[in-house]
Amino acid sequence: NARWTTEEQLLAVQAIRKYGRDFQAISDVIGNKSVVQVKNFFVNYRRRFNIDEVLQEWEAEHGK
């Protein structure tokens, strides 16, 4: 399903906090979204969920 429920959106943001840009890991956490759908989520929801800021926090924690 290409549509993202609110629950899936929140799950994705939590997974980004945990896995950074590991699209496969994020896809696995959500369970019903492909890697391509996760990559599209990054692009389409970047502003709404401040994904750049979430990634900066992840990179700071993981030394990337």
Rank of each mutant, 00 (worst) to 15 (best):
Q56N: 09
A15S: 07
R46Q: 13
I16A: 07
V38G: 01
Q14H: 11
V54R: 09
W4K: 03
L55S: 05
R3K: 13
D22F: 02
G20W: 02
N44V: 12
V36P: 14
R17G: 06
V38S: 00
G20V: 02
E8L: 02
N40K: 11
W58V: 08
N1P: 14
T6Q: 12
K64G: 13
N40V: 04
H62I: 10
G31W: 02
I16F: 04
R46H: 06
E61Q: 08
I16W: 07
L11A: 10
E7R: 11
Q37N: 05
N1M: 08
Y19P: 02
F42G: 03
E8R: 01
K33E: 01
Q14A: 13
K18E: 09
E53A: 13
W4P: 01
T6C: 09
A2H: 13
R21H: 08
N1D: 13
F49K: 05
A60I: 15
L11E: 08
I51D: 08
E7Q: 13
K39V: 02
G20R: 02
R48G: 09
K64E: 15
I30W: 03
I26L: 02
L55C: 02
T6D: 08
D52A: 07
Y19N: 02
V13C: 07
Q24E: 12
T6W: 07
R3N: 12
L10E: 13
I30G: 00
L11N: 12
E61I: 09
S34P: 00
F41N: 01
W4V: 00
S34T: 13
K18R: 12
I26A: 02
L10Q: 14
R21C: 10
K64S: 11
E61Y: 01
A12N: 06
E61W: 03
K39H: 05
D28G: 10
N44S: 12
I16G: 01
F42Y: 06
R47D: 14
Q14E: 15
V38K: 00
R21S: 12
T6P: 13
K33P: 01
V13K: 03
I30M: 06
A2S: 14
V54E: 11
K33Y: 03
E7K: 10
Q37S: 05
A25V: 03
R3H: 11
L11W: 06
A60K: 13
V13A: 05
Q14C: 07
V13R: 05
H62T: 11
